[in-house]
């Protein structure tokens, strides 16, 4: 139980928030820099969104402070979801 007493400070939450805002700004800037509708634009936007989602899950949802087993399962779920998308792509892009 002791590990759950370790809650994040207001300051670290604020830093996370600042990072998220910064990344949002970068997303907007990047959409202009990459032309908005190109493949590159999608890849960059998705890449930044992934970083942001990771920050939220780690810091705001407290996964950082949890047992290794929860991290393992979240990792497994993300891998499974990735597999869904990859295998579907193998069908749709080669049909």
């Amino acid at each position: 139980m002791s590990k759950h007493e370790h809650t994040p400070s207001f300051k670290s939450d604020l830093i996370t928030f600042g990072l998220l805002m910064l990344l949002t700004a970068i997303t907007i800037w990047a959409s202009y820099a990459t032309g908005g509708t190109t493949v590159l634009a999608v890849l960059v936007a998705m890449g930044i969104a992934t970083v942001k989602a990771t920050l939220v899950v780690r810091n705001f949802m407290h996964i950082k402070y949890d047992d290794i087993i929860y991290k393992l399962f979240i990792g497994a779920v993300i891998i499974i979801f990735g597999v869904f998308i990859t295998l579907l792509a193998v069908d749709y892009f080669y049909r």
Partner: peptide, 23 residues
């Protein structure tokens, strides 16, 4: 875990791409 990777074996004759069928 591996059970999530194989669903396409029910769809070999569904018109899925050849590449996907092999995988």
């Amino acid at each position: 875990f591996l059970g999530y990777f194989v669903w396409g074996h029910h769809m070999f004759t569904s018109g899925m791409s050849g590449e996907a069928r092999v995988v």
